[in-house]
Design a protein around this nucleic acid. Structure first.
Length: 430
RNA sequence: GGUGGGAUGCCCGAGUGGCUAAAGGGGACGGGCUGUAAACCCGUUGGCUAGCGCCUACGUUGGUUCGAAUCCAACUCCCACCA
C-alpha cells in the first residue's frame, strides 16, 4: 500500500481518484495544503454493520488521515433515533434506543480497521448520542431553531418531494433531522476544532446547514465537501449482490462472497473502483486500466481490486482463504483435494449432515437433495436436472432418477453439490 | 362525509361462466457463447407424481351454477375526484 502516487497534494489525489463531488469553498484546497485540520464524517447506525456503500466515505477519511489531517468518524447514535429524510421515499421505521446503541458499537469496531487511532493525528471516534440526547428542548429551540428558516427548509429538494407526495408525507421528527446534524457540526467545531465535514452527495444540504449554524453561533469558518454517488456502468445499484447488500461484517457477507463481489465487477467500472477503494498508486492503477483495455479476458484489474479490498476489510488470512476457494471452485477439478482442504474451502457454503447409511438406502439423489434443502421442492430439482444445471463433484447429473450411493462421494465423507455455475452445497456423511 | 374505480402468480398486467395453473412483459433461475463480464440465443418459472392424474391458487367470507378468477352479497384494504 502506498500513497506515493506522484501527487502534489491530497486534494490533487482526491480529485484524481474521483472523491471530489463538490466543495463549498474553492479555497478548501489551499487550506488543506497549508494546515492540518480536523474533519468529520457521519455514519448511520441503521444496522450493526456497515455495508460497502459506506466504504467510499471511509476511504475518504483514511486519505485525509494519511495526509496528516485528523479524522473523526461520527457514529450517529443520536441522529439515528430520528432518521435522515434526505432523498428517502418514505418515513423510516424508528429504531429503538437499544438497537441504535448496539449498531453504533458494531460500526465502531469496523471503522477501527481503516483508521489509525494512534499518533499525533489519531482518529477519534465519537457518538452524537453523547450530546444530542442531553439537549434540553427549549434551549435547543431558542438557540438553534431560531437560526433555521422553515421557508428555506421547505425548499430543499430532499424535503420537497416528500411534501408533494400525498402518500408518504414527512413527520415533524424527520423534518427536524437537519437541525440535529447541523448542531453536530457546530458542536464538533467547538469541542474538537473540527472545520470540515465530508459525506455522500446526499448530505450536501445537511452539511451546508451545519456550516451556516457554526457561522452564526461561533463565527466559524467551516468547510464542506461531498463524495460522489458510486454508480455502475449498467445503471443498476452499486453494492447489491444476489443476496442483497454486501456487508463489511464477515458474519453477514463471508470473505469469499465479498471477494467474489469485487471480482465480478464489469470492466467499465473497475478503473473507478480501484481509485475509490484501494490505496494503489496512480501508476499501478493506470497500468491495470491498460491491461483491462488490452487483455480484458484476463481481468487483471478485477483480480487486483478484489485482492486489495478484501485484504483491507478482512485481512490477509481471509483473503488467502477466499482466493484458494475461488481457485478450487472455478479452476475446475475438485478431485485430489483432501477432506481438510475441502472443508476449509467450503466453510461458508451451506452444508447438510446426513447419516452414512443413506448411501446404501437406495434413495435417489433428487430425493435427498430436496430434503437437504438444496431445492425448495422436488419439482424444482427435477427441472434443474432436466436443464442440465445440477452437478455432483463437478460432474453434471443428467438423470433425475440417479441414485445416491458410495459412487457419489468425493472423499470418504464428503460430496460437493453445485447448481448452476457458482452455487455450492456440501453434503457431509457422518 | 359523498361519488366513482380497483384488489390476479415474485412484480407489472391481460383475462368478464367451461378450451385457465391462468396471455404478455419484467425479474429470477438453468443451459449455450464467453472472461466467474456485458450483450445475445435457448429453456424453466405452484405442489405431489416415472406418467395418467390429483391437490392448492386470482383480497376475505358466504352464495348462484353441472361448472366461477369471471355472476351475486357482505366485509377488508387501496386509489381517484368532490366536500
Amino acid at each position: 500500500m502506498s500513497t506515493e502516487g506522484g501527487f502534489g497534494s491530497l486534494f490533487e489525489e482526491l480529485t484524481w481518484r474521483g472523491f471530489v463531488n463538490a466543495v463549498t469553498h474553492p479555497e478548501l484546497e489551499a487550506v488543506l495544503g497549508r494546515e492540518k485540520i480536523t474533519l468529520y464524517c457521519g455514519f448511520d447506525p441503521t444496522a450493526d454493520s456497515l455495508h460497502i456503500g459506506s466504504l467510499l466515505p471511509i476511504m475518504g477519511l483514511a486519505h485525509f488521515q494519511r495526509a496528516g489531517h485528523r479524522p473523526i468518524p461520527l457514529v450517529g447514535g443520536g441522529t439515528g433515533l430520528i432518521g435522515d429524510p434526505s432523498f428517502k421515499a418514505q418515513e423510516r421505521a424508528m429504531l429503538t434506543r437499544e438497537q441504535v446503541d448496539l449498531n453504533a458499537e458494531g460500526i465502531r469496531r469496523q471503522l477501527a480497521h481503516f483508521l489509525s487511532f494512534e499518533g499525533e493525528n489519531a482518529a477519534v471516534m465519537l457518538n452524537n448520542a453523547d450530546w444530542l440526547c442531553a439537549l434540553p428542548l427549549v434551549d435547543f429551540l431558542r438557540d438553534v431553531g431560531k437560526h433555521f428558516s422553515v421557508n428555506v427548509m421547505l425548499n430543499r429538494d430532499s424535503v420537497k418531494n416528500r411534501l408533494t407526495d400525498r402518500d408518504h408525507g414527512i413527520s415533524f421528527t424527520e423534518f427536524s433531522y437537519s437541525l440535529l446534524q447541523a448542531y453536530d457540526f457546530m458542536h464538533l467545531y467547538r469541542t474538537q476544532e473540527c472545520r470540515l465535514q465530508v459525506g455522500g452527495s446526499d448530505q450536501w444540504g445537511n452539511i451546508v446547514a451545519g456550516m451556516d449554524l457554526s457561522r452564526r453561533l461561533c463565527a466559524a469558518e467551516t468547510y464542506g465537501m461531498t463524495f460522489p454517488l458510486v454508480t455502475k456502468a449498467d445503471g443498476t445499484k452499486f453494492g447489491k449482490s444476489e443476496g442483497g447488500n454486501v456487508w463489511l461484517d464477515p458474519e453477514r457477507t463471508s470473505p469469499y462472497a465479498f471477494y467474489q463481489f469485487w471480482i465480478n465487477q464489469a470492466d467499465a467500472d473497475t478503473g473507478a473502483y480501484l481509485r475509490y477503494f484501494t490505496f494503489l498508486s496512480r501508476g499501478e492503477i493506470e497500468e491495470l486500466d491498460r491491461l483491462t483495455r488490452e487483455e480484458p479476458h484476463k481481468r487483471a484489474a478485477q483480480r487486483r481490486l478484489a485482492e486489495e479490498v478484501t485484504r483491507l476489510v478482512h485481512g490477509e488470512e481471509a483473503l488467502r482463504g477466499a482466493q484458494r476457494a475461488a481457485e478450487a471452485m472455478f479452476g475446475g477439478d475438485l478431485a485430489g483435494l483432501d477432506e481438510r482442504t475441502l472443508l476449509e474451502i467450503f466453510h461458508d457454503v451451506p452444508s447438510t449432515a446426513l447419516p452414512k447409511d443413506v448411501l446404501g438406502a437406495d434413495r435417489t439423489l433428487l430425493d435427498v437433495l430436496a430434503e437437504a434443502g438444496v431445492f425448495p421442492s422436488k419439482g424444482e430439482g427435477r427441472r434443474m436436472i432436466r436443464n442440465g444445471g445440477l452437478y455432483l463433484n463437478s460432474r453434471r447429473v443428467d438423470a433425475d432418477d440417479a441414485k445416491l450411493d458410495a459412487g457419489c462421494l468425493l472423499t470418504p465423507a464428503l460430496a460437493v453439490v453445485r447448481t448452476g455455475k457458482k452455487n455450492y452445497h456440501l453434503l457431509r456423511f457422518e
